[in-house]
């Protein structure tokens, strides 16, 4: 396999960095030289990856304008030979690239714009999961509520941004007047998810951001309500917890797949009645 290996390695190197060596391995005709023929592969590689990045980051492209976006894309392609089998994932590193390689003063905001847009893309084709419905919760006995644990649907992503990237993205996509990219003194939390087939996003209040992270980390409803005390005061925490839960259900943020209560996992030490209740909540 030595000859095949050496040809493939040399050809790939040529695509990354065209030179004369590979020309000697290829036939030429009167109509087209080996260099001309090889150039098609080198050009196609860059064009294809640039097209993918353009499709994945239309908001960033609109914001930057054709020329600057093309410059960034060229630099990204030069620095990132694809290691992905599926082109779907090639653009995953663009936010980090902008953060570390871009020289502009706006690099932090641009990185966040890319991070936000990539999150929308992830939401687009995230795994499907049946949504948790209100009816399903209605049959959970009150005694089991404190131990209930919820699971976020797979498309949910929680972002902490230090700029107005989502607003900039929305304006850029709408073709509206350019708004300034401004860093914020304090970080703001955002949620990105998919509703139906459409990626959605909205800003999160501090208590909701905390509560969603608590859900993500497997805290039960009692722990969430208890944690909300620091934001809402003792007497309003349970009410706020219930209100957030209602919103999450309405927005389709919770997955039906793994609603569990502690009763389920501790069934062996409980009565059979409790086990049945646990199974009902977690079925």
């Amino acid at each position: 396999m030595r000859e095949l290996a050496s040809l493939q390695l040399a050809f790939q190197d040529h695509v990354y960095k065209p030179g004369r060596k590979m020309e000697r391995a290829m036939l030429a005709t009167r109509r087209a030289s080996a260099a001309r023929r090889l150039r098609i592969y080198a050009n196609a590689y860059r064009l294809r990856l640039a097209e993918v990045l353009g499709n994945d980051y239309p908001g960033l492209a609109a914001r930057l304008g054709e020329e600057r976006f093309a410059r960034i894309v060229r630099a990204y392609i030069a620095a990132h030979p694809s290691r992905h089998t599926n082109l779907r994932w090639y653009g995953a590193g663009l936010a980090r690239f902008l953060q570390h390689s871009s020289r502009g003063r706006d690099r932090q905001a641009l990185a966040e714009l890319a991070q936000f847009e990539w999150a929308l893309g992830l939401a687009f084709d995230a795994a499907d999961a049946p949504l948790l419905e209100v009816d399903r919760l209605a049959i959970v006995p009150p005694a089991d509520w404190p131990a209930l644990r919820f699971v976020l649907q797979p498309s949910v992503q929680l972002l902490v941004l230090h700029s107005n990237a989502p607003q900039v993205w929305r304006t850029a996509r709408a073709g509206g007047r350019k708004i300034a990219m401004s860093p914020r003194r304090t970080a703001v939390s955002w949620i990105v998810w998919r509703k139906g087939f459409e990626p959605c996003y909205r800003v999160l209040e501090a208590d909701e951001a905390w509560a969603l992270r608590a859900v993500k980390h497997g805290r039960d409803f009692a722990q969430i309500c208890s944690g909300l005390r620091r934001f809402a005061g003792g007497e309003h925490a349970a009410q706020r917890g219930a209100q957030l839960l209602r919103n999450w259900l309405a927005e389709g943020l919770l997955s039906a797949a793994a609603l569990t209560s502690r009763a389920g996992s501790q069934g062996r030490r409980r009565t059979s009645r409790t086990r049945r209740r646990g199974a009902r909540a977690g079925a």
Binding site: L9, A44, L49, S82, H84, L87, Y90
Partner: peptide, 12 residues
Amino acid sequence: TGVGGRNLHDLM
């Protein structure tokens, strides 16, 4: 389509 863990995303 590529060697050495890299991918040219082309039909070489």
